[in-house]
Design a protein around this nucleic acid. Structure first.
Lengths: 215, 215
DNA sequence: AGCGACCCGTAACGTACGGTACGGTTCGCG
DNA sequence: CGCGAACCGTACCGTACGTTACGGGTCGCT
């Protein structure tokens, strides 16, 4: 039975964090040979300790996913004045952050692992990755969209649907291509450019023609 | 050494097709336990035959990907009269077909396998899936887009970029969610609706304001 | 100093699976 | 009929890996 880093668990100790970082390192370097032996060797700990701390292999992987998620979580986009320029900045920030995330080696390795795991039957790895990726950013972006709507800057019926459009315009084919091993260099300059284009398109679809139509 | 169904290979014999269908069936039912033993049992053939025909496990998987691709490939969208209604129909057909494909159990299983494989180093599985999925549809759609532009119905600079926008608007978060195990029922009615919405959005972004501006 | 908790390193066990070998059967052909 | 090619079913081998067990070492507490 796991003692720490359970699915609802508390924060890992620094030593445990070092172990989880070792897992992340191994995943990125060579996603396949992620064996308990390799983790123990890399983290300079015994396998017995791994099993005491994390229960079994799946527990270790789950803890790793949550550890990585806790590292990314997330600068607040505090609601500023919210004119159209501020809204653009906010959306552009989200888009660039998302592209940076999904193109990072860590995210690629983690998603590959979770997807491979989802092929087997029961496993919350996929659910964990979804909750901390796709759905987390959705819940953080939707309030921004709704504030934009209240300010008369955006026009849409359903925030979820609008977010999915945003998601598609930003991500396009990037994630699936990277997951399938396509070389797709995404330097910061191109990320900025892609984010800009995506926001232009999103505002073309959902920007309100007239600010505050009923004001 | 593989004798048949090489990476450039000729069509598999009917018996080989039955074997590859057995692989597809196993993949869909329980993607993990896709062992050579299980394939042989399901296909009622000996492992020795599998190795003679396909070389090794990777050869079998590659042949399976190509077999599936050959089954999907692809009704022609012959260039019809090409007014705006015909263009809409054509795009809507592409969108619905793509959504149907990526939400099919076979595609999900195949992509999971290829993604897991891409975590290991050398492997053309990911490349194969990309070539027969994302890039195949791109090459088939771009001529339609360009005809639409020539007819003054569409406005864009780069067909590749326009296609990626199309791809994002159609696919959104569907594929990644399905790959990660999210339940996401996508009945034909919803596919049709999603395709319609995606085409509306695409035309809002790239529809030419005035047909044949220089005519 | 003595004791217990914690942990490292390594060895050991069981199993699953990719790959190979072999006997037996069917089928086409001279 | 006689023969060889193709193939099925099964047994077998080697290895990799998850998991457990054990010996020894370090640290904190009394």
């Amino acid at each position: 039975m796991t003692t720490t880093s359970d699915s609802t668990g508390e924060a890992p100790t620094p030593r445990q964090q070092a172990v989880l970082d070792a897992v992340l390192g191994l995943m990125v370097e060579s996603g396949d040979q992620l064996t308990m032996d390799a983790v123990a060797r890399r983290a300079s700990c015994s396998k017995e300790t791994l099993y005491k701390w994390f229960g079994d292999r799946d527990g270790l992987l789950a803890a790793t996913v949550q550890w990585q998620a806790s590292k990314v979580r997330a600068r607040r986009y505090d609601r500023q004045h919210l004119d159209v320029a501020a809204l653009r900045d906010s959306l552009r920030g989200f888009a660039a952050a998302w592209l940076t995330t999904i193109s990072s080696p860590t995210s690629i390795a983690l998603n590959r692992l979770a997807i491979a795991h989802a092929a087997s039957s029961g496993s919350n790895l996929g659910r964990l990755v979804l909750a901390n990726g796709r759905f987390a950013i959705g819940e953080r972006l939707k309030p921004v969209l709704e504030e934009g709507r209240e300010a008369g800057l955006l026009d849409f019926d359903d925030a979820e649907t609008a977010f999915r459009t945003f998601f598609g315009l930003v991500g396009r084919d990037v994630q699936i291509r990277l997951l399938l091993g396509d070389r797709l260099p995404l330097p910061p300059a191109e990320i900025a450019q892609d984010a800009e284009r995506a926001i232009d398109q999103f505002l073309a679809l959902h920007g309100a023609a007239k600010p505050k139509p009923q004001a």
